[in-house]
Nucleic acid binder design. Structure first.
Lengths: 139, 139
DNA sequence: TTCATTTCTGAAATCATTGCAAATTTAAAA
DNA sequence: TTTTAAATTTGCAATGATTTCAGAAATGAA
């Protein structure tokens, strides 16, 4: 199920968003697209240092912020102790288990989407639905 | 519309939650109940230092955490740059304006609440629905 | 190639939050 | 009321994830 993205596809996506493609940006976007694991900046950094020896953690932070600002990636603040990122920007909810800290993707019920469409007075550009509790294994 | 809570009511509420009442805890819970402004710990601290000269910021942090752990207050992480608190623990959504940073409360239909609490495989104990964009004044 | 611009890097700085030990307060017993 | 032990609060120092900064490197245009 894990789709492999080509350098060309990623470059095109960056440029379509108005971002210049660099080796680091292509690698980071590619990692986010191919790994639906809600990684922290540090996880991305550790995963890519083999591939790009010169990569610095600062670049990962900067690049993720850039991707978030251009809507290519989203940032999750479901847990207040760490910040993580999601390469899937289609609307979906997140469930975090208080036991094992795993983050699961959840379908958003149609009713919620309807409710959000009916928000007069606001111009909505981002929705995060965070649900917490215990997963099957931990409850 | 702003309801005034008595010391006795607040004390009873703390004790019902299994928390000993202290001058600081009563003041902080009272502030949260009476001011639906989604304050940060620092805002609570600044607001109460006149009333309680000896109050320390550490106590505000500790007490808010205690109240959150006992379900009397909830913590919002809608903006990744600051953490704020909400004295209204009934389920409702939050809209944050990217322009003026105001946080607005949004009603959530009853069906949606039920649906979110009833996720198979998960035992849900908290739901946060964060919406971002621009408010009427800023868009 | 050269130049101008953008991007990347590593180290240092920031700052909200937490940890800790001492001081204070509380509540119940005597 | 006084004593006593436990709980709470305080102030300050430490923490650590994140951000900033200035120089170095890479890129693209001419």
């Amino acid at each position: 199920m894990k789709k492999k993205y080509t350098r060309t596809e990623l470059k095109a996506e960056l440029e379509a968003a108005g971002i210049r493609a660099s080796v680091q940006r292509i690698a980071i976007l590619g990692f986010m697209r191919e790994n639906p694991i809600h990684p922290t900046a540090d996880v991305v950094y550790e995963a890519l240092r083999d591939e790009i020896g010169s990569l610095s953690l600062t670049t990962v932070y900067n690049t993720l912020k850039l991707l978030v600002d251009h809507g290519l990636v989203s940032m999750l603040t479901i847990d207040d102790t760490f910040r993580c990122f999601d390469g899937n920007v289609d609307m979906h909810a997140h469930f975090m288990c208080r036991g094992c800290k795993s983050i699961y993707d959840i379908e958003v019920p149609e009713e919620v989407k309807c409710m959000l469409k009916g928000l007069d007075d606001f111009k909505v550009d981002e929705v995060q639905l965070y649900i917490k509790g215990y997963c099957k294994n931990c409850k």
